[in-house]
Design a protein around this nucleic acid. Structure first.
Length: 777
DNA sequence: GATTATATGGTTTTT
DNA sequence: CCATATAATC
């Protein structure tokens, strides 16, 4: 027994074995904190007989939660782990609120608004208050409100706060408090909570309802919190309340990796934790098991430039490893190509798999150049983040129907679906509906149900009545059918599916497939066995499903975790992950550090922590890159290299220069230097001859010149054909290159390449896996 | 009221 | 460059 303790170092064991009382673990990057957390939970259960039902663990993503559960189940060798309460703050609280909502005046089936929904409500409210949405930009208003909530400042507090009033008056938005109040009221009326409300309402529940507080205090005898440096004051206060009875609160964090202050997170929580509890045990995990000495060393150097930090020194027994590569390119496109070429080369030379590589960047918009380059080379990849599945329009549309059926108070969902697909209830009618609803202080749905009474006539009235009948029909099926069958019915009867099916454009086709995928996901939800639960509302109903998916992260939606693909993501999304070889791209002033975050020392230090997080994702190999110019707002913009690069000691770096200029001249430096003269800011970057070695230059030094193509307008019946059986001699149509004839077929069967002679554009090699070709004959 | 053309304006990061 | 908002037209 207790053999799960083997393989833990002294400090890790100390953290695991600490039984009762507050515990703070300061865990450096790659120091095995997940291992410590899982082992600690296992130990509580196995050695101290703590019931799984009495343990609450809060993680940063649902995926991390699922993995933790799985690992614990594996070590324990039984099914007890499924009774653990593990999840993100948001999902755990949503689950609790689903049971307790009526106490605070919400329906059990409350809707969860994502950012887009919330902004839309804010916009409506601004219009209703007769304010100008140019002066009050929904984006700004939303972030102000969100910031207030995360600091536990409610609408009334906000509107009455003298300082906030002054601040808003100065910033030319004196009515912000009123908007906040109206927004909060509207959400409440709609039976909806936004992301921040999940914390706020949980706090209010515990604060104002002693019976609820004591219920959950008794239940959660042991509380563990991962990524503690990224918690905000609202979360802090909730935990303080929940943990007050037993004080068995264990937090794990690393101040050096705090990167979510824009979401209200504050490192203060770490300092405050020590003050709030009398006798906090503190354990520091300082041995890094992930990275080479070189990588860890420059990480330490970089973070050393930040001022306030909790003292700790990361060390490792790992090998020294390679030097850090620093590559400069002329443009973002060449940066993409350099990365793709390097991946290809490294993969072959060291027998690495695609999934050993990650490309990290500061902003989602940067993914494009990497996508293009990887696709061109036939390297499979997967992008995390950006527009997630559940944010696609077609998905949100169908979900809005389901949301509305479950909660007809949700005016936001109603507005989305009432005229989609078009059924003749347009803007004018809806303005009237909104007007009547506000006058009588009832829901828009009630107005619709009594449309005749409110004076709607002929055409409009008929359309509205039909809509009401349809929705009522769906509602009556709500109790008779399961979520999947109902969703299928809604898709059919609302004509959404038909509408998408009839759209034969490529985008339409993709949308249709997305909807099918959504239906599949609902089916899967229904078919997965119930999580054992003690008398909670947690059931297989549509309401549960809707609440669950609104809290999914993009990382959670990852179906094939082990797929052999190169991973592309923002640094934020990479937190907690590790890869054999990491590319950190776009190390340029105004991009990283980002122009939005260089105005205060605090902001800049957070950018630096972000850089630190990026570096410490790498196990063996690290490549940093930057481009002299990149497309932004559709225009080529020049940038200096990032100030962070100057913080890395020269002897750890191997510089090189990839791109077209190098090729044209046959000599890397002359063109490079000429270019440098045109761009100030390169003075200190001494591109010494460090890469003048005789080694064969990688192929990224020779991008083929691309002749301008003659754009082709696809035929109206253009539709991608199945090209599996394509043969030489056949005539095809390509979306861009126009009509042509297959000259030869080559390449492996899983990645066939066709050489095609196009009438307008000459001979081109086309990868069939990616190109859209219509077979003409 | 719906469909299409033009204008605008916005990019940091995410539950 | 992109997506969404408004205007113009049927």
């Amino acid at each position: 027994m207790l053999n799960y303790l083997q393989g833990l170092n002294e400090m890790q064991q100390k953290a695991v074995l600490h039984k009762d009382g507050p515990l703070m673990i300061i865990a450096g990057a790659g120091s095995g904190k997940t291992k410590v957390l899982t082992t600690r939970i296992t130990h509580l259960m196995a050695a101290h007989n703590v019931d799984a039902f009495n343990i609450l663990a809060l993680t940063f993503t649902n995926k991390a939660a699922a993995e933790m559960k799985e690992r614990i189940a594996h070590i324990l060798g039984n099914t007890e782990a499924r009774n653990l309460y593990i999840g993100t703050f948001h999902s755990v609280f949503a689950r609790i609120l689903r049971t307790e909502a009526p106490k605070i005046g919400y329906p059990n089936n409350f809707t969860i608004y994502d950012t887009e929904d919330a902004k839309s409500v804010i916009k409506t409210v601004i219009n209703e208050l007769n304010l100008d949405d140019k002066q009050y930009k929904p984006n700004t208003v939303y972030s102000r409100i969100s910031a207030a909530k995360n600091a536990l400042v409610g609408p009334a507090d906000y509107a009455n706060d003298y300082h906030l009033q002054q601040e808003d008056a100065k910033a030319n938005r004196p009515m912000l408090g009123q908007i906040f109040v109206a927004y909060a009221n509207r959400c409440f009326k709609n039976g909806a909570m936004d992301f921040d409300d999940l914390l706020i309402k949980m706090y209010e529940l515990l604060k104002n309802y002693p019976d609820a507080l004591s219920k959950y205090q008794r239940k959660f005898k042991y509380i563990l919190i991962d990524e503690y440096q990224d918690t905000n004051p609202a979360q802090y206060e909730i935990i303080k309340l929940l943990g007050a009875m037993h004080e068995n609160v264990c937090v794990v964090g690393d101040d050096a990796q705090s990167i979510y202050s824009f979401r209200g997170a504050t490192i203060e929580n770490i300092l405050q934790f020590k003050k709030d509890y009398d006798d906090v045990a503190i354990v520091k995990l300082e041995q890094n098991y992930r990275s080479t000495k070189n990588i860890l060393h420059i990480a330490n150097q970089v973070i050393g430039n930040n001022k306030g930090q909790i003292e700790k020194v990361l060390f490792t027994d790992n090998a020294e490893g390679e030097k850090i590569k620093l590559v400069r390119t002329l443009t973002d496109n060449e940066e993409g190509k350099m990365v793709a070429d390097t991946i290809q080369e490294q993969r072959l030379r060291y027998h690495l798999a695609n999934k050993d590589f990650a490309i990290l960047y500061r902003t989602n918009a940067q993914s494009r150049s990497f996508e293009e380059a990887l696709r061109r080379m036939g390297i499979p990849y997967r992008i995390y983040g950006g527009i997630s599945f559940y944010q696609r329009k077609e998905i949100k549309d169908l979900l809005a129907y389901l949301r509305f059926i479950v909660n007809t108070n949700d005016d936001e969902a109603l507005k989305r679906i009432i005229n989609y697909p078009a059924r003749g209830i347009g803007k004018t009618s809806m303005e009237k509906v909104a007007l009547y609803a506000n006058e009588k202080n009832i829901h828009m749905w009630e107005v619709l149900c009594n449309a005749a009474m409110f004076g709607f006539k002929s055409g409009a009235l008929e359309s509205i009545d039909n809509f009401v009948i349809t929705i009522k029909m769906f509602q009556s099926e709500l109790t008779k059918q399961n979520a999947y069958d109902l969703a299928v019915l809604v898709g059919k009867h609302s004509n959404i599916v038909k509408e998408l099916f009839n759209d034969k454009t490529t985008e339409g086709l993709a949308r249709y497939e997305n909807v099918q995928e959504l239906l599949n996901s609902i089916k899967e939800f229904i078919e997965t066995p119930l999580n054992e639960e003690d008398g909670e509302v947690g059931d297989k109903g549509l309401g549960t499903y809707l609440q669950q998916i609104s809290l999914l992260t993009d990382a959670d939606a990852d179906s094939d975790e082990n797929a052999d693909t190169v991973k592309l993501m923002t640094i934020h999304a990479a937190k907690g992950l590790e890869f054999t070889m990491v590319f950190v791209a776009g190390l340029e002033e105004t991009l990283f550090p980002n122009a939005m975050s260089i105005n205060t020392r605090e902001e800049l230090e957070e950018e630096r922590r972000l850089f630190y997080v990026a570096i410490t994702r790498a196990k063996a190999k690290l490549v940093l890159s930057y481009a002299n110019a990149r497309y932004r707002f559709g225009q080529l913009q020049q940038n200096d290299s990032s100030r962070f690069l100057e913080e890395i000691p020269e002897e750890y770096i191997e510089r090189s220069y990839a791109g077209q200029a190098a090729r044209n001249n046959g000599n890397n430096w002359q063109q490079g230097t000429a270019f440098e003269r045109m761009n100030r800011g390169f003075g200190n970057n001494n591109f010494s001859a460090s890469n003048s070695s005789e080694k064969k230059k990688p192929s990224y030094l020779t991008p083929p010149p691309r002749p301008a193509i003659k754009e082709h307008v696809p035929s109206n019946n253009f539709e991608a054909s199945n090209t599996a059986l394509l043969q030489a001699g056949q005539r095809v149509e390509h979306q861009k290159f126009g009509f042509g004839q297959i000259v030869t077929m080559e390449g492996a069967s899983h990645n066939p390449i066709a050489t095609i002679h196009f009438e307008q554009n000459g001979e081109k090699k086309i990868m069939l896996n990616y190109a859209k070709l219509r077979i003409v004959e």
